[in-house]
Design a protein around this nucleic acid. Sequence first.
DNA 1: TAAATCCTATTTGTAGGACAAATATAATAA
DNA 2: TTATTATATTTGTCCTACAAATAGGATTTA
Lengths: 239, 239
Amino acid sequence: MIDNLTTTTLADKVEERIIGYIKENNLVPGDHLPNEMQFVEMFGISRNVVREALSRLRMLGLIQTRTKRGIVVTEPPLLNGFRKILDPSLFSVKSIKEMMGMRIALEIGLAEFLFTNVNNNDIQELEKIVKRQKAIGSDNLSFEEEVAFHSKIYEIAGNNFISQLTQIMHPVFVFVKKNYSNYFLPVSKKLKERGEVVSHEMILKLIRNRDKKGYHKAVRLHLKHYWEFIYNYNESDII
Amino acid sequence: MIDNLTTTTLADKVEERIIGYIKENNLVPGDHLPNEMQFVEMFGISRNVVREALSRLRMLGLIQTRTKRGIVVTEPPLLNGFRKILDPSLFSVKSIKEMMGMRIALEIGLAEFLFTNVNNNDIQELEKIVKRQKAIGSDNLSFEEEVAFHSKIYEIAGNNFISQLTQIMHPVFVFVKKNYSNYFLPVSKKLKERGEVVSHEMILKLIRNRDKKGYHKAVRLHLKHYWEFIYNYNESDII
DNA sequence: TAAATCCTATTTGTAGGACAAATATAATAA
DNA sequence: TTATTATATTTGTCCTACAAATAGGATTTA
């Protein structure tokens, strides 16, 4: 009985037309848009609909609106929309697998920039983090500690976009590890038995030695849980 | 005179609360949300504001709304929001550089999946594409042709998320090459002179030979324009 | 009894009016 | 010339009304 026919409302069309307006007129951040009533007249619709459409663009960060000042185009934060939808429990296994794949690809590809940029000062800071975490014990790391190391890596690589993207997706991975623990735990155990566990300390060593190839390999191992999940997990395994 | 104080409206708060409602109640795709009037009562605000907030979530693909049926949670397309904001002319050089970095990292990281998945049938299809393009001449490729090869690569790698992301960003790169041509043309020329141009044909050969390392290197060269731009371009070069 | 048809109540979609709040701009005063 | 005040404009919020779609129940028909 559930069909996917998703009705397109006036707000949908107006949203499109306003985005179109920005493009056609080559508006750039700082430029003014017509105000609400002008759009009402341009499109021959109620102010309500215009406001719905503007509200969407406002949410994405494409415009800013202020009383009397009117509507101004702004440079949108790249991942505003992505961040909002990232509720882990909403996603199918397929989507989650794709996010994992993305994470792996990024982490490996990032090495290009990491090894180009890294300097001794960076390495000292990484050493500080690793030393602190070693004292805590690698199994007892808090969320913040777990993130700290990788965040620093992203920082060195100098790509905020990638860093944000990974951070935003992080809760999804936490969720999956928890909710698919009957899959992850055995994999994790097996990896440990085989000694195929990559610590932050080991990764740091590879960076220190500027060993990009070793780094690639290490990252693959570090994220092997996900790799296994992508290729071997079937939904039927659970039920 | 321009300050960045961005007022938070009621719609902003209600949007947050509705997303919160979904999370707190562990709603999953298919589940019903309270209807508009119930939200009006829950939050003690006007229907207008509720509709603005719902309109946003609707746009992101987080919910579907249909007359009489009410409001239903849906699995959001990962990149709905991202697609909407991707008007090339809106972005600063910094953002563009980060997108380029992302593209390079993805393309290199993707090799992991590409080389894991690729089979002879895939290679035959790639050969067909390359043959066709060779007949056209590599300098005269249409947009569709240019994309065709890479799309096939993404398809083999089996990650729709990455594929979409790259496709969405593509217009940005086209825009940059055009608008920063006084930067790109000399680089392009230099690369050609040095014979450092990587054709689709060469990439195909590497894939056929399952030469991952060579592939990494080739991709770096293939995207070297962007690499140069990231590291060497200064805005002052233009003006 | 079962199936098809029609009705009705509910819910979203659109319109339009009213007023509050903020503020750029013009007018006035020091 | 500068500081203050007043005004007009524009977004933000609330309200009411009605149109359009439709799920679910009531009714009719086979």
